[in-house]
Amino acid sequence: MIDKDQYKVYQEPFYQQQRNEVALYEAAYRNRLPVMVKGPTGCGKSRFVEYMAWKLNKPLITVACNEDMTASDLVGRYLLEANGTRWLDGPLTTAARIGAICYLDEIVEARQDTTVVIHPLTDHRRTLPLDKKGELLHAHPDFQLVISYNPGYQSLMKDLKQSTKQRFTAFDFDYPEAALETQIVAKETGMDAAVAAKLVKIGGVARNLKGHGLDEGISTRLLVYAATLIKDGVAPRDACRMAMVRPITDDADIRDTLDHAIDATFA
């Protein structure tokens, strides 16, 4: 029997609610509705799911999807061993058996034929056919499916199929508005609010340049990095350059503009 507890979230993760998403998620979970979390990179999607798993006191199994992933990577496969073969559950199957929340991160990265295996789990059937094993798994009553994706890739090809989208309830995340993001950075790192606000301001500058040479703005995650460095004694100007500017761009003009924004903000 699998040890369920290893997937439990024991410590309360810090999560700053943006609107009323916690209550909404709880409602979705009560009714075991599948959930989709959309939003740009580093805006708190994973953190939210982790927090909800903690709050609901349910195990959480996270799968980072990629384009080489096949259905068997999710469902499971037979392994060849010296004395025969042995079936090994994939993470999705495990979650369905033990009643975990299964979080498929960046689902669009997976090939579309992979994505369809989740379909029977997401409607009223709540089943997972393990064709090769000849088993029809009925999901544990606590099981719930959550997927995330970043709609920022702006490609028709990286869009989810309608038939997949239409099986989920959805949260549309974005970088929080300035006051909230300031609180997040401050709480997450213990940084004082005035400095956190400056970091957020610089983040805003980069987000204004999105589509004009930047593909994505500066994420909340990077703001947290910068604050962490500053807490550790790194000079703010250096910390910002290192954590917020250098990672996101090689474009000299953009770099120069963001550097200037840093100097103008940290007077």
Partner: peptide
């Protein structure tokens, strides 16, 4: 010129 375009857009929208 481009830097100034970015400046206007980034810092001042």
């Amino acid at each position: 010129e481009r830097k100034l375009d970015l400046y206007l857009r980034g810092l001042w929208q």
